[in-house]
């Protein structure tokens, strides 16, 4: 349905409405705000999007998204090259980086094994991972995959593939989240937390 705006604006609204978290109504509101704040929002956004469209690419080493063939993490000399954190998706890598608690390098798998979605080992970036491990610098691989059936199936599969290469394979702990109260936790999380208990 036409809003009475021009064809180009309608097209922008239609494209914005395809973004996660936005629908036609919120896309229309966002576009209207950008147009009203043209110098503050629309022009810089258009320029930033043009630049990103021209330069964004996948890191050939880890699969992170950056603006050059090797991402900033892979080229940083401050990063520990002996620890590799394996994540499902770039968004997981970015979440780890936001926490600022990991100083090693990453490998983005590009998904997890899922028979339902037809994702088998061939669809994941496993050959590159094995090549990186086989180069000999990596001593530990941390499997930072989701605590879901598919995520943990992938974790066990990777452990089977990586352990024979002579490295330590670890996985993230599962249990009570920071700020979590036992009363509100599902019984699966409580059970995982109890099994992973440690002495104080």
């Amino acid at each position: 349905m036409s809003d009475g705006a021009g064809k180009e604006i309608e097209q922008l609204i239609a494209l914005m409405a395809k973004l996660p978290g936005l629908g036609p109504r919120s896309a229309r509101r966002a576009v209207l705000t950008m147009i009203k704040k043209r110098r503050l929002l629309l022009d810089p956004l258009a320029q930033a999007m043009t630049e990103v469209a021209a330069t964004a690419r996948e890191c050939v080493e880890c699969g992170n998204i950056g603006t050059s063939d090797l991402c900033d993490i892979c080229t940083s000399p401050k990063r520990d090259q002996t620890i590799l954190c394996i994540v499902e998706d770039v968004s997981d890598l970015w979440a780890m980086e936001r926490a600022q608690v990991f100083s090693g390098r990453y490998h983005v798998l590009g998904g997890v094994l899922s028979a339902l979605d037809g994702i088998g080992p061939d669809e994941l970036k496993l050959p590159k991972l094995e090549t990186r491990v086989a180069q000999g610098q990596i001593k530990e691989a941390i499997l930072a995959l989701g605590a879901t059936v598919d995520g943990q199936t992938t974790a066990h599969y990777l452990a089977d593939r990586l352990e024979p290469l002579g490295i330590t394979v670890t996985t993230l702990a599962q249990g009570v989240p920071v700020g979590g109260e036992l009363d509100y936790l599902d019984d699966g999380t409580i059970s995982a937390a109890l099994r992973a208990r440690k002495s104080l």
């Binding site: 943990q152 999380t189 995982a192």
Partner: peptide
């Protein structure tokens, strides 16, 4: 509504493989 989680199998290699096989065959 949840009745009983079987998430305890997530950390059990064989148990998780069994759970996946059962659900896959039934599905």
């Amino acid at each position: 509504e949840p009745v009983r989680s079987r998430a305890g199998l997530l950390s059990d290699r064989a148990g998780l493989a069994g759970l996946t096989a059962i659900c896959g065959l039934l599905r």
